[in-house]
Write a protein that binds this DNA or RNA. Structure first.
Length: 763
DNA sequence: AGGTACTTATAGAGT
DNA sequence: ATAAGTACCT
């Protein structure tokens, strides 16, 4: 029976089918299990899968949930409309696109595409690029869209205009206006538009609203604490008719305010739906008592929260271990060594996760892991889909699918080089603007327009356009693999890379081949039948076309392609939400890094950082290791850091401290349950107020070079470096801490190294 | 038009 | 440390 494996609170939540429901699910409280059981229970009670809408934050979460529901109830699960906000709404928008004046094959601009468009506009408006930085303008526009301010709302808002004027950036409204016009002209939407336009659709077309209200009789929203205003309002409108809305979340895990999410949505659910039934899942099944208690201590420092008591009946476990290290490298080495030791004792690599605040921290960890041949899997960072060569290929696909996509046109027209340079493109842009048509349309009809572009160039442009047109014509006759493969072949991208004959080019070719593989997988999908849950129709193999592929790929992230295997996992804390691991390292516990510098200016931001730390702690099942470094490389230079304030927020009853990473835990496994003599930390840390002066000279070189070794370096010495291998010293300069050597490495050539940091050893 | 060499800006999380 | 942009040369 479905309910047998659930505790009382979980059962209560599952049994409540109708009306507004909020489930506050503490970390590790079996949220996914409850949610999947709940949907299965609904289905068993006669609710049609066709009437269920389930919204998640990641594709992965949606897939996993669907899989689990299928296990419980079988085929009907296939018909449930379940996915991310962005993917579900993009599909609805494609169906209803003509209402908003879009083609159904509109393009989706990712952040890079959007930024380059904004940049173009700033340049065209002759604005000072120092004052109007792309990232700032982008943030303003994104925030406006997430709060449903159109360009005219933006320009008419006294408050917003005052803000912009105060910042001496009063042109942002006009940039926004132009940006949106250009998106429309390219038949494109950015990520925020998917939410904004969904709102427009439901606001301006009552028949559409009614249609989807009637369709979605039961609505579930996962991670409700991370919804922004635009998402909140869509949900509210869709649920207004039947009021069967079930939201699940944990205010303590709200970590996306930076993206416009409002913790208020979950805190105010009872206000919106006074008759809402509230269920709290407070028993943690994931972590040891020490971990749960430590997490509770940390989160208790936040003011904004729903009261709850997360507890566990799991074993007490060992204390959380905090270590401080000389440098980011030493910290990384400590992580590697600890993992190695535990693997020797029988644990798997995949039992470990290393979590960090910022993606840039992954580098030093990767280096250390590689050095020790420790298998790892890196999540995030430059995703597969944002690699240049992949974006190049996808630009071709986009252009074929949507000829008006100016961004895709500009990217493709001279890639690979066809002798169509900047001058030509600028002339083309002018023609397109004069005739108010897209670049592609202007290019295709170029012979009919008078222009300064010379004849041979015109021929090349027309030839390109004809190739694209030929592809576009067959887009619905051929499957994504056949067409995509041909586009790649005919574009000449791969040939150009082959001619480069470099290692990098080889990698790029491999990546393109991987993309071709994914086209093939998309077309073949072992699942005999793919069902479009939105329309209820089956999608045959021939209907798995390039535009369908593209519509999915634009919203795909790396995390969605999991490559399993026994590997240590490296990821940001944000990416780790919803996951769990037996052993977790949280590295970089330093002021100005975690919490980040930007977050310290506002209390609410600091609270968000604390929730982020809470999320990180609660990923751990058995053991948690947190660490910091006294200095680390940031932006290419060395910075010193103090221990994060968050470390102190963990009661010492649950924490074990050591200042140097190694050999400091004599009783690693034994005394875990012995609390009796642990009133004081093993080592007294300097209090945060007693600011120690920054060390003027470093205690020890990172790699352990004793200073005596420095003297032995001479011009002509043969040396070995941990990363670069063997080489010969060509030059020496500087004194003391600044002593540098130019080394000619046998592989890789000349490099200048600061001896204080470089792991150079004399052979 | 295209490629190379040098300069400069920029580093917070991700659908 | 790195990517992106610019200046300059072929």
């Amino acid at each position: 029976m479905l309910l047998d494996e659930l505790n009382q609170q979980q059962q209560d939540a599952v049994r409540e089918i109708d009306g507004p429901i909020i489930i506050i699910a503490g970390a590790g409280s079996g949220k996914t299990k409850t949610l999947t059981c709940k949907i299965a229970y609904d289905l068993q009670n006669g609710i049609s899968p066709y009437n269920i809408l389930a919204l998640t934050f990641t594709n992965k979460a949606a897939e996993e949930m669907k899989e689990r529901i299928t296990e419980l109830v079988g085929t009907p699960a296939k018909y449930i409309l379940m996915g991310t906000f962005h993917s579900i709404f993009s599909r609805i928008l494609r169906l209803e696109s003509e209402r908003l004046g879009f083609v159904s094959r509109f393009s989706i601009y990712d952040t890079d595409d959007a930024k380059s468009l904004i940049k173009t506009i700033i340049k065209e408006m002759n604005l000072d690029e120092k004052r109007y930085t792309v990232s700032f303008v982008m943030e303003r526009i994104s925030k406006a869209k997430n709060n449903l301010f159109s360009p005219s709302d933006y320009l008419n808002s006294i408050e917003i205009q005052a803000e912009d004027r105060a910042a001496h950036k009063e042109q942002i409204g006009y940039i926004y206006q132009q940006y949106n016009r250009r998106l429309k002209g390219a038949m494109a939407m950015d990520f925020d538009d998917l939410l904004f336009n969904m709102n427009v659709l439901l606001r301006d077309f009552p028949d559409v609203l009614k249609k989807y209200q009637e369709r979605f009789r039961y609505i579930m929203v996962d991670e409700y604490q991370d919804t922004n205003f635009a998402q909140y309002l869509i949900i509210k409108k869709l649920a207004a008719l039947h009021r069967n809305i079930c939201v699940v979340g944990d205010d303590a895990q709200s970590i996306y305010a930076f993206r416009g999410a409002s913790i208020r949505n979950i805190l105010n659910f009872k206000t919106d739906y006074p008759d809402a039934k509230v269920f709290k899942l407070e028993q943690n099944y994931r972590s040891t008592q020490n971990i749960v208690n430590a997490a509770n201590c940390v989160i208790a420092n936040n003011e904004d929260q729903i009261k709850k008591n997360v507890w566990t009946s799991n074993p007490q476990g060992c204390k959380i271990r905090y270590t401080n290290h000389d440098s980011d490298r030493a910290e990384a080495e400590y992580v590697c060594q600890t993992i190695k030791d535990k693997v020797i004792d029988g644990d798997n690599y995949s039992d470990f996760a290393v979590l960090y605040r910022t993606n840039m921290q992954s580098r030093v960890l990767e280096e250390a892991l590689r050095l020790r041949n420790t298998p790892y899997r890196l999540y995030g960072g430059i995703s597969f889909y944002s690699r240049k060569e992949i974006k190049d290929v996808l630009a071709y696909f986009r252009l074929v699918s949507n000829n008006d996509d100016n961004g895709a046109f500009e990217r493709s027209i001279n890639n690979p080089a066809r002798g169509i340079g900047n001058t030509t493109i600028n002339r083309l842009k002018i023609i397109a603007a004069e005739h108010n048509v897209s670049l592609f349309s202007a290019a295709l009809n170029l012979p009919n327009f008078s222009s300064k572009i010379n004849g041979t160039t015109v021929e090349k442009i027309v030839e390109f356009c004809k190739m694209i047109v030929a592809f576009s014509k067959t887009i619905h006759q051929r499957n994504a693999y056949e067409l995509g493969e041909e586009i790649i072949r005919m574009s000449g991208i791969k040939t150009a890379l082959k001619n480069e004959e470099s290692i990098e080019a080889e990698d790029r070719i491999n990546n393109i081949d991987e993309l071709i593989n994914s086209l093939q997988a998309f077309v073949r999908k072992e699942d005999d039948i793919i069902i479009d849950e939105l329309t209820g129709e089956e999608i045959s193999q021939t209907e798995r076309t390039l535009d369908v592929f593209l519509s999915q790929v634009s919203l795909m992230t790396d995390a969605d392609n999991d490559d399993e295997g026994d590997k240590v996992v490296l990821m940001t804390i944000h990416a780790a939400k919803g996951l769990e691991f037996p052993y977790v390292f949280i590295v970089g516990m330093e002021e100005n890094l975690f919490p980040s510098l930007q977050s310290l200016t506002q209390r609410s931001d600091t609270e968000e950082e604390r929730r982020l730390f809470y999320v990180a702690i609660t990923r751990a099942e058995k053991e948690l290791m947190i660490s910091s470094a006294r200095m680390r490389f940031r932006y290419g230079e060395l910075v010193f850091a103090e221990r994060s304030r968050f470390v102190e927020e963990i009661d010492e009853a649950y924490l074990e401290q050591s200042l140097d990473g190694k050999k400091s835990f004599p009783a690693l496994h034994k005394d875990a349950n012995d609390n009796s003599n642990r009133k004081k930390p093993l080592l007294k840390l300097p209090s945060k107020d007693s600011k120690k002066p920054l060390p003027t000279s470093l205690p020890h070189p990172v790699g352990g070079n004793a200073s005596s070794a420095l003297r032995k370096f001479e011009i002509g010495s043969r040396v070995v470096h941990s990363r670069f291998g063997e080489g010969t010293i060509l030059l020496l300069e500087g004194e003391g801490d600044n002593r540098k050597a130019m080394v000619n490495f046998d592989v890789g050539g000349k490099k200048i190294l600061v001896l204080r940091f470089a792991k150079l050893e004399i052979l």
